[in-house]
Amino acid sequence: MNPTLDLLYRLADDQLILGHRNSEWNGLGPILEEDIAFSSMAQDKLGHSLQLYSLLRALGEAEPDTVAFTRNAPQFHCCQLVELPIGEYDFSLTRHFLFDHAELLRFEALATSSYEPLAQVARKLRGELKYHALHANTWMKRLGTATDEAIERMQRSLDFTLPYALGIFEKTDAEAEIISSGLFVGEDELRGRWLESISKVLAQTALEVPDVLALTPVMGGRYGQHTEHLQPLLDEMAEVFRLDPTADW
């Protein structure tokens, strides 16, 4: 695939799928503020995915709604991390923390992308993503220094989620060209910055951080290999759209 399209599909699909997962906390958050926080982040992420699908549209791909609602799981380029069910709050928080640190750093790097339309969008999104990272840090630090039960649950979530988080940085065949053309600094570079960034926060908690780079990453998402959880999510997302794809909502 053309390197720009390859990069944009990965970015947009991550946002769309995690946005939908976050929205599942609507009405179920452990406290009202968290209900609102996850719902707001869902709204942000759907907005971000729309901006990115619009860039794809300008490059000749299908309309954003068509791209979002008519593909099946093997055609999605999101990492597996974002498609996992919301589970308990500790997992959703840990995923949000690990993903949004990568996302903030990714869009900070993309702000100087050689592809100017993407750089423009990135300059906008990075400011918004700061709030996502701030929110995640606050709760990681709070729960990661709280009761024994809280620390134990957060530790278990961290250990479970880290291998999936490493899948964020899965490279595609276009990676070399993406870097050489100045589109993006590349996944390895991003992973290094991410590790530094999450380590700083985790160091302020009672959580033990394993040797992250020694873990086996959960890969495949960027090539359309997904868990059994993605297709049911897509079916639910598109249920109304598919009733009448020509309807004007």
């Binding site: 503020e33 926080a37 719902s39 707001s40 709204q43 907005g47 700061k130 709030y131 701030l134 929110h135």
Partner: peptide
Amino acid sequence: LEYAECPNCHGNNTELRTPFGATL
């Protein structure tokens, strides 16, 4: 992001409760 001026007393002895409110 944690700094804010109180719209009532205009002081800054304030703290951030949540970065997400009624609108984005």
